[in-house]
Computed example of a mutant assay.
Amino acid sequence: MSNRLLSCLLAVLLLAGCKKEAVPTTAATTTETVGNVTVSNLDFNYLTAKSQISLDDKNEKLSSGISLRIKKDSVIWVSVQPGLGIEAARLMLTQDSVFVMNRLKKEYIATDYAYLRNRFLVDMNFEVLQALLLGNYQPQGTEKVMTAQDQQHVQQMRENLLFDYFIGRQNSKLQQLNVQDTNTGNTITVKYDSFRELGSVPFAYGLAAQVLQQGETSFYTLNHTKVTVTDEALSFPFSIPGDYKRHGMN
């Protein structure tokens, strides 16, 4: 698996925001979101999915199959399978650690979220990553809540990042998330579609992200072919062979 494809995987999984909360500077008035935003977030103990991830930018187009497993609020595990039953890489995220194993190059990364913040220039944490993957809305205390046609529009300011959530009124699901870095002008737009019932809650089987960074635009997609939630415990194997070298992460 090329480093570009690995970066694609990380980029789709790791579009996120920072922890600190603040009143939106663009809001004329603010309201507490508790009780004011109607949303149907997916709740579960364990989740599995078979999916296809892809990257499309001016340099190249890449895609790969992946297997996804999540233990709520604990572990996100991904196996990258380009085809022919070959596993090219494995990724595991916990509350405080990030592990990536590149089987084709026999090397691995074992680090924390500071490395990802430095690499992608966006502050991030496990809770935001999980919510982004699932299409779940995250309330952040004081926010500006507005009406946008057939959607609820919620605006948050977290340090230098401006978040705009658009939640559909018909299915009460997150339809689109816009994130703008007010310092650099970089933007991320994530759209959720292809909703199907998962248990009693609609779930987006399609995720499409457009990333504008330093004047260049990249497109990422994540499409699920099968998603299952269960109460039965899943395994999250991540054993690094003795002959693998630790990546320097420069």
Rank of each mutant, 00 (worst) to 15 (best):
A110V: 07
E143W: 02
Q170A: 14
A208P: 07
Q155R: 02
I70Q: 04
H224L: 03
N186V: 02
A110E: 07
A28T: 07
N136I: 02
G248F: 11
I167N: 01
P82L: 05
S40I: 13
Q180M: 10
F120S: 10
A148M: 00
G185V: 11
R119L: 14
L47M: 12
L132Y: 08
T230K: 05
D57K: 10
V122A: 15
D181T: 04
L161S: 13
Q180R: 13
K173Q: 14
Q149V: 00
E21R: 05
S200K: 15
A131E: 02
F238I: 07
A11Y: 07
K105V: 05
D73F: 11
V227E: 12
M157W: 09
N183P: 06
L9H: 03
V154D: 00
H224V: 07
V227Y: 14
N178Y: 12
K245G: 06
D181I: 07
G83S: 01
F236Q: 10
F195T: 09
V12Q: 15
N178K: 12
V75S: 10
N183F: 11
A208L: 05
R246S: 13
D96A: 11
T217M: 09
R4H: 14
N171K: 13
D123Q: 14
L68F: 05
I167F: 00
T33L: 02
S200Y: 12
Q180D: 09
R158D: 06
K191E: 09
L234D: 01
S63V: 04
I70W: 04
H153I: 03
Y165M: 05
Y220C: 08
Q175T: 12
I53N: 01
Y113R: 03
L47N: 12
D193Y: 12
K71W: 12
Q176V: 06
F126L: 05
I109T: 00
V211L: 15
L222A: 05
F195H: 11
I86W: 03
N183S: 12
T217F: 10
L177C: 03
R119I: 09
T225G: 08
A11V: 06
Q52L: 14
G248L: 12
N136S: 04
S63W: 10
Y244D: 04
K61M: 13
H224T: 02
W77A: 08
S40V: 14
L134D: 01
L10F: 13
V37F: 06
T30K: 01
D181Q: 03
L104W: 00
S54D: 07
R169F: 09
K58L: 14
K20E: 06
R196H: 09
F166S: 03
Y205N: 06
D43L: 15
A49H: 01
S54N: 08
F195M: 07
T221Q: 06
D56F: 10
R103E: 00
L68K: 02
N36F: 05
L162W: 06
V78C: 04
V229M: 12
S97T: 15
M101S: 08
N186S: 13
I240R: 05
D112C: 08
L212K: 12
I109A: 00
T187A: 08
